[in-house]
Nucleic acid binder design. Structure first.
Length: 529
DNA sequence: GTAGGGTTAG
């Protein structure tokens, strides 16, 4: 290390940095200015690289990027230790900035090391340039297990589960052994593909090898939850041998919510300590689903009493709970209080007005969302559009829904999915406008991937409302072909035949259900008899 | 210096 005055100052600062961060002294203007104004000539690259990573570790990516910029201005040579922290700090970078960093790495000859190349792959994945991430991986001269793990995790995050499973096979084929990290990503891929059998193989491996890690157990709980095996999720949770942390508690609570075991969630809430925001969010979701306003209010009080941060996610969960439990006024008051509204905040409030039969206000809120788009940087997504259509449906706003559907494509450039078509067909059907519903249905019939069960069910109901037996029978055939093992398809078709007094058809369907061993799921109601 | 688990709308 050179003994210039700058180097001396720098080494002192690096030494003091953890303490400064701990006491938040970097927020103090004079300290900050000392850092920012310090000239960098004569400073050795080693110390500056250490400073870069200190900023990132302390959760200060902006400081890291500013320092990196200064290093470039002062012509400090960059090496393979400079890039990983800067790439980590660039997880929200623009595509052009990301590619500039890539070019700098190439120029500095830092692409051959698997460590720096993996950091680059991860950066591209973080800024959603998955093709660039794949390119970096392909070009890596040495692919170690960390690189493979980063690749798998990127593929899973970008909903490319099949490719992730293929990559795992290639990884084994190339002679690289997997680690716990690999299996966690694989579990996520199997959860997305709902392949219970393969996930169970990982579970078996964990049991046989005694690989007892909290992270692996949490990943297994999440996997079983996605595959609707809540009893297995609870079994994994109960068999964990080491002290449990908040993440695993949250995972099992979420597994219960997602699988409708609401009482179990409330029981967990009573015993889990300390409480945390994630757990409370899941519990609010349970209240919303089970229409439990009493518990919902109690949780609201707990959030106040314990001084939890009211972040956007918690606000959204509270707002949704009040809306689902019938208190629209409280939901709107909370919506007004959200500091930073995201697309879920907007969709939730639009949906809240929709389910309360206030479609005009829902449409007005959507318009407001559009007007505030420039300042809020929040755009509607497919769920928002679905909520608006659903709001129109609940209020019988047929023409408004048709116009909105048209604008979705023409103004917002959004391609409606089969769910949007199903919603519009359902709406037209309820209004007795079977001809228009049929035209939409036929347009979907020509593109097979959009002719889904919900679309058929909506069209079948439209035919039932308008007493159109001929068309209904065609739709019924489509529905039973699409979903031959789903009891609810048979129930829908049976109800259709029943509405026309075609009892022989009803009998026939019942026989098929019995021969296939299909049982109608029992209905339930929150309203006491 | 790189890679892994838990939360909100339908």
């Amino acid at each position: 290390m050179k003994s210039s005055p700058h180097n001396l100052l720098l080494s002192q600062l690096i030494y003091l940095l953890p303490t400064l961060y701990r006491f938040n002294s970097l927020q103090c203007l004079s300290t900050r200015r000392m850092f920012d104004e310090m000239p960098l000539w004569d400073c050795d690259p080693y110390s500056l690289n250490t400073l870069l990573s200190s900023h990132v570790r302390a959760g200060n990516p902006t400081s890291a990027l500013l320092l990196f910029q200064k290093m470039r201005v002062f012509g400090i040579p960059l090496d393979s230790y400079s890039f990983p922290p800067v790439l980590s700090a660039s997880s929200t970078a623009s595509p052009s900035l990301g590619r500039q960093l890539h070019a700098l790495m190439a120029k500095a000859g830092c692409l051959s090391s698997p460590i720096t190349a993996t950091a680059l792959l991860d950066m591209y994945s973080n800024i959603s340039l998955i093709d660039d991430a794949l390119f970096v991986f392909e070009e890596m001269p040495t692919k170690d297990v960390v690189a493979w793990n980063a690749l798998l995790s990127s593929l899973v995050i970008h909903n490319l589960a099949v490719k992730a499973v293929d990559a795992f096979r290639s990884m084994l084929g190339s002679g690289v052994s997997f680690t716990g990290f690999t299996l966690c990503s694989l579990l996520k891929a199997f959860a997305a593909l709902r392949t219970l059998r393969l996930g169970r193989q990982i579970h078996a491996w964990v049991v046989i090898t005694g690989y007892d890690s909290l992270v692996m157990a949490t990943a297994l709980i999440d996997f079983y939850s996605s595959c609707a095996q809540v009893h297995m999720a609870i079994e994994v949770f109960n068999k964990v041998g080491c002290p449990k942390d908040s993440a695993i508690h949250n995972a099992v609570a979420n597994a219960c919510v997602k699988n409708g075991c609401f009482q179990e969630v409330f029981a967990l809430l009573g015993v889990m300590r300390p409480l945390n925001e994630v757990l409370l969010t899941s519990a609010l979701s349970a209240c919303a689903e089970s229409l439990n306003l009493l518990y919902g209010r109690e949780i609201h009080c707990v959030i106040f009493r314990h001084g939890f941060d009211f972040d956007t996610i918690l606000f959204n969960a509270l707002m949704n709970m009040y809306a689902k439990c019938g208190n629209l006024k409280a939901a709107h008051l909370l919506f007004d209080c959200v500091g930073e509204r995201n697309v879920i905040s907007w969709t939730s409030i639009i949906d809240a007005y929709g389910i309360h039969g206030r479609g005009v206000e829902a449409l007005r809120l959507f318009k407001r969302m559009e007007e505030e788009k420039a300042s809020s940087n929040v755009s509607p997504n497919s769920v928002t559009f679905l909520s608006v259509l659903s709001a129109c449906s609940h209020s019988g706003l047929v023409d408004e829904a048709k116009e909105f559907f048209f604008l979705m494509k023409e103004k917002h450039g959004f391609a409606p999915s089969s769910a949007h078509y199903a919603c519009l067909i359902d709406l037209l059907g309820r209004a007795g406008r079977v001809e228009e519903a049929w035209d939409l249905f036929c347009s979907l019939n020509r593109s097979h991937n959009k002719l889904t069960s919900p679309v058929c069910v909506a069209m079948l109901n439209a035919c039932r409302v308008s007493m159109d037996f001929m068309r209904g029978e065609v739709v019924a055939m489509h529905l039973l072909e699409l979903d031959p093992d789903n009891p609810s398809s048979y129930v829908q078709v049976s109800n259709f035949y029943g509405a026309f007094g075609r009892w022989e058809g009803v009998q026939e369907l019942r026989k098929i259900m019995i021969s296939k061993g299909l049982k109608k799921e029992l209905g339930s109601s929150q309203v006491a008899a």
